[in-house]
Write a protein that binds this DNA or RNA. Sequence first.
DNA 1: CTGATACAACTAGTATGGTAGTATGGCGAG
DNA 2: CTCGCCATACTACCATACTAGTTGTATCAG
Lengths: 250, 250
Amino acid sequence: MKTLQALWGETRESDPVRQRLYQVLRQSVIQMVLAPGQALSEKEIADTFSVSRQPVREAFIRLSEAGLVEVKPQRGTYVVKISQRAVLEARFVREAVEVAVVKLAAEKGIEPATLTELHDLLARQRRCIEPNDNDRFYRLDEAFHRTLSLGVQQYAAWKVIEEVRAQLDRVRYLSVPHSTPLERLVDQHANIIAAIEARDVHQAEQAMSLHLREILVSMPDLIRRFPAMFEEQAAFEEPETPVLKQESMQ
Amino acid sequence: MKTLQALWGETRESDPVRQRLYQVLRQSVIQMVLAPGQALSEKEIADTFSVSRQPVREAFIRLSEAGLVEVKPQRGTYVVKISQRAVLEARFVREAVEVAVVKLAAEKGIEPATLTELHDLLARQRRCIEPNDNDRFYRLDEAFHRTLSLGVQQYAAWKVIEEVRAQLDRVRYLSVPHSTPLERLVDQHANIIAAIEARDVHQAEQAMSLHLREILVSMPDLIRRFPAMFEEQAAFEEPETPVLKQESMQ
DNA sequence: CTGATACAACTAGTATGGTAGTATGGCGAG
DNA sequence: CTCGCCATACTACCATACTAGTTGTATCAG
């Protein structure tokens, strides 16, 4: 388990402080270095990294937009617990966007260079199976999906995927090492590539859709095993009415 | 044409200042009150609204994440010009998500109350046709799509749609009043509702997809008529590969 | 007149101070 | 013992001050 300081050291000093803080805190929330429900505070974090409160505040705001923390004015900032609802919604968005991406790839085809890169990533993923190197696989998986999106020139799509991934990765991290075997995931990646190469649109969509449904199988088990990590859910109660509110800012 | 001050007056005083500023500036960019390419500055905006630089800065950061302004460190902040590429990418994401939403609606069905609301919105949209009340129609259109997304319990999807809409709405605002006749758009909405009611998944997807492709027809014309609003870029040339960037906050 | 350089006038980024609102624990009244 | 009030110690939000980097311009050397 990495510490906050270790992650801080990995960030580039040339980047703005608020950005470095955001990266560190985002990873910390995803990897459960910061526990769901835990209270943060501008001052506390500022002291930890020897910076002022202002960039910390800005990082908090960004984190709250990503749905990773909740800022309660005049009260405090808290790491949000994993919400089954939020995870399912994030998965829905991700599937919608990413299926559209592979569809485009299968329809229009993609650059040979991109295809080469995908195959390369696939091979490197295979090498993670035997040593069960989850961390490395995690990064390669991210690279795989990014390469796909950027390969069809859809940068905005990748940004959306990256955003909603945070919710999903928290669950994935929780499920290590009892999650889906890496081999299975690699095979799914292989199927996606194969379908794109074959220009089989339907098959590509199916393969991606199936791949992104993996997370669903582990959820119920996780809720049972780590109830403290999850928001107590009024399972089918209807949530706040966000209706008239303008966009997300806050 | 509204002024910044008028929009400021419409925001709720109880909301945080940065949020009110964000709303005002976002609308101003979309409605071209702030011209593409125009330089802003924290101090200037702060003085305009008699607030300090800090909340202005935070609003700028949020706007830059939405792709509406670009913050250049130590130099200035500029309203981004409309980028054909960004518009097409935003449209792609929106279609992906929103088609998935109607698909879900047609598959699982939606609450009668939601259906009633959609019909109500549709009727009110019809009443905008004859007086050609674009502003009112714009708000009803937004409400229509929001009602649909929230009707299938996909709040995260709506947040994404709302986010990418900003790019698209800038174009729409530019194209008024030469855009698609309102009647045509209302008919498309009607088709979407009808398909959902008929539980015809394929038809629902088709109807939504078609609806969201409207914007494509006006683009080339707009680029010809308002070149200053658009980022220079050989109109139909294949765009260069996007720079590989980390997530937005960086 | 041309080119380089120093400086002035901006900019955003970060640090710090002040204010108002909220939770909490203890104390006193019932 | 229980309930309500109030002091206290937090919090985030906003304002202000300071730092550092960029740009345009005026000045001076060649």
